[in-house]
Design a protein around this nucleic acid. Structure first.
Lengths: 228, 228
DNA sequence: TGGGACAGAATTGCATACAAATTTGTGTAA
DNA sequence: TTACACAAATTTGTATGCAATTCTGTCCCA
């Protein structure tokens, strides 16, 4: 594998780089993440790679199978529902808090984000659009000034990206930008009630855009899956 | 340091053992966790110790200072408030879900927990009582059947133990068992409304029992702290 | 032709060795 | 005596080596 870049990688920056790649669907669910391969790619030893993979496994983005290696996680339909239930518990109230604390600078950041996402979609870069969409949600948590909750939301958003990769039904285009625009309006008016309600519905729409009935469940073991 | 026990430790079990010790206040905030020391205590190499410390740092129970080592975390007053705000967001609704799903077996587990906690308090083992109190909250999340949310709550509970170690004002005895009994009653009646309300108030009482005004803040650097 | 056993290759698990940074201790000069 | 500089010791950061496990390919036999 090619060397990625000549910079001083640490386990933290490697983990962040991998998380970004996962979030952008450049590393789809189930991808094997070999230690030697990654070590060579980043120009570091397996020690640091393992630390990075361990960190990602704690965020449920990577699954470590003993003596088998690390794989990009494949959330089950059950897990997918749980992730969105957790988001439904955290994000609407966080959006409300953010709304009442909103400053001009914050609005500018969110606006820029939406525009970038639009550009990415026009350019056909769906991965980048998805990453930006996640960053929109994360930025709201940051504005709400709740680092602890923001951490949880950050993990949930990244896991949502895996869920979308696995369960999104392509019917309609992700009309996320619509919902984000509506939220931005509420934020501009510092309307907490509206922000909370919009976020709640936005998350419900997201779940509705998934197909969690067909329990594609575990490609876990090919041996089991292909029996018969 | 003495060897702790002759069993096959892994990074996971070591992390769990350390977390328990932290939760029980056997390892108070600020304690230095030297790699060699721990490695000898558990009879394992520094490699596994580092993996365990890394896991605990991801749960915000241990702070890793580069080139300085690992220390039991010392949450700031700000962080303390955030942790309880997060709990206030997650636990009341989770208690409601648990109430409606409650089975006889679940009730038995919760009852046994309360009794054990009582026994621990009588025996003067405050650490164990605190651990059991946390497990009561965690068990509720488990009963609610939301593994993802339960994970978050598990982390928040452990961090709360650190917060109590740092900020609890000893005035009155922790009248937690009172509140837990009341919750148990609501659960017995499968009364979701009451459970949610009781949990909300229980958490408010907990915060009220802390002294977060005196920002004891950072013994972070002795050099800075002892100036003048 | 298909199944199973076995051997070699590849990969992970863990310990250890060495490098780098920090802390601690000592000596010297003002 | 105090402050500073420098050296020794301790501790962490990272790479590497070896053992253990799993995977893959081949051969033999039914």
């Amino acid at each position: 594998m090619n060397k990625i870049e000549n910079r001083a990688w640490t386990s933290d920056t490697v983990a962040a780089d991998l998380e970004r790649a996962i979030h952008e669907h450049r590393l789809p669910p189930g991808t094997k993440l070999g230690e030697d391969e990654l070590g060579e790619a980043y120009g570091i030893s397996r020690t640091l790679v393992r630390a990075a993979l361990l960190a990602l496994s704690h965020r449920h983005l990577v699954e470590l199978k003993r003596n088998r290696g690390a794989f990009v996680a494949q959330p089950s339909a059950l897990e997918a529902r749980e992730v969105f239930e957790a988001r439904a518990l955290l994000e609407p109230r966080t959006a409300r808090s953010a709304a009442v604390r909103m400053t001009e600078a914050d609005l500018a950041v969110l606006t820029a984000n939406i525009e970038e996402e639009h550009a990415a979609l026009d350019g056909g870069d769906n991965g980048r659009a998805l990453l930006l969409s996640g960053q929109f949600h994360l930025e709201i948590a940051r504005i709400a000034n709740q680092a602890t909750i923001a951490n949880f939301i950050s993990e949930l958003i990244a896991r949502s990206s895996l869920i979308i990769a696995l369960y999104w039904r392509r019917r309609a285009a992700l009309c996320e930008t619509q919902a984000h625009h509506a939220l931005l309006d509420a934020f501009t008016r510092q309307d907490g009630d509206a922000a909370e309600e919009l976020m709640k519905n936005h998350l419900l729409d997201l779940v509705a855009s998934l197909d969690l009935r067909n329990v594609i469940q575990p490609p876990a073991s090919l041996r089991e899956a292909l029996k018969r």
